[in-house]
């Protein structure tokens, strides 16, 4: 029955080629699949070796996908206002089916992603993979690191509990001390910076962490930061291929 199904137009239109184990089909399997064709058809043996790449870049991306999916689900249950945010969290944790699972996974995956991104950077450094021609992709990576941290930090505020507002208060208090642009920073007061017009005020939408901050961080967390991070990830992945795939020793230079 399955064999005759395989002959139908529907099947052929979806899978495009037969699945006999030939070199050609193995190649087509990658090229014909929109998700897989991010890959080259063939790569160096050591590039598929987990002990070389540690898989941390790939896992960071997987965690980003998990975060996107769980994050969208959370958005159905969460209103970014000081009045409702905390109540919505309580409701989610106590009354929504699978609510805790989704929220926990979003939080732990966020922590895990910060971790894997740092380890990924460590690996890329230790294999010297930022050296030509991959200099620029390292720079893109550093930007991704920054956005990963900012995403995690902005999300930290959203539960609107004691832990979140105080952590964000501690973090954003630094902005007061920004040289030139903060009201307690070097030369800030001389330039006319006050608590109600410096960078921290712009960041928080007020002189302290309050309802406008919640809204600002929410929009940043759900739209602005992920969109930009996604754009940089696209560049990152595209550059990996353009730079010749995963780094490896250049045998022309290094004579055996």
């Amino acid at each position: 029955m399955f064999d005759s199904f395989k002959k139908t137009e529907v099947y052929k239109s979806v899978f495009r080629h037969s699945y006999q184990d030939t070199q050609r089909n193995r190649a087509l399997q990658v090229v014909d699949n929109v998700f897989l064709h991010l890959h080259p058809v063939r790569i160096a043996r050591h590039a598929a070796d987990v002990s070389y790449t540690w898989g941390m870049g790939g896992i960071s991306f997987l965690l980003f996908l998990i975060l996107t999916i769980t994050g969208i689900i959370l958005m159905f249950y969460y209103r970014p206002t000081a009045q409702y945010a905390y109540e919505d969290m309580k409701y989610l944790m106590n009354d929504v089916a699978f609510g805790p699972l989704i929220r926990n996974m979003h939080r732990w995956a966020a922590h895990a992603m910060v971790l894997t991104v740092m380890l990924h950077m460590f690996r890329v450094f230790l294999t010297g993979s930022y050296k030509p021609p991959r200099q620029f992709n390292w720079v893109v990576g550093v930007i991704l690191l920054l956005f990963t941290l900012l995403l995690s930090f902005s999300g930290y505020l959203l539960p609107w509990d004691q832990l979140s507002i105080w952590a964000v208060t501690v973090g954003t208090n630094m902005a007061r001390a920004t040289p030139l642009l903060g009201h307690e920073g070097p030369f800030g007061p001389q330039l006319g910076m006050r608590p109600d017009n410096d960078v921290r005020f712009v960041l928080l939408g007020g002189t302290e962490v309050g309802p406008p901050t919640l809204l600002r961080f929410y929009v940043g967390h759900c739209i602005f930061l992920p969109v930009i991070a996604t754009i940089f990830m696209i560049v990152h992945f595209w550059r990996i291929r353009k730079d010749g795939g995963i780094s490896g020793p250049d045998m022309n230079k290094k004579a055996a």
Binding site: L62, G248, P249, A256
Partner: peptide
């Protein structure tokens, strides 16, 4: 002297050799 990575620079096919690693890792 010669890095071991240099001895493993022959090409392998992404399907199945890389995809299966990614699948397991996922």
């Amino acid at each position: 002297g010669t890095p071991i990575e240099a001895t493993k620079d022959d090409k392998i096919q992404v399907w199945p050799y890389l995809v299966r690693v990614e699948f397991l890792a996922t």
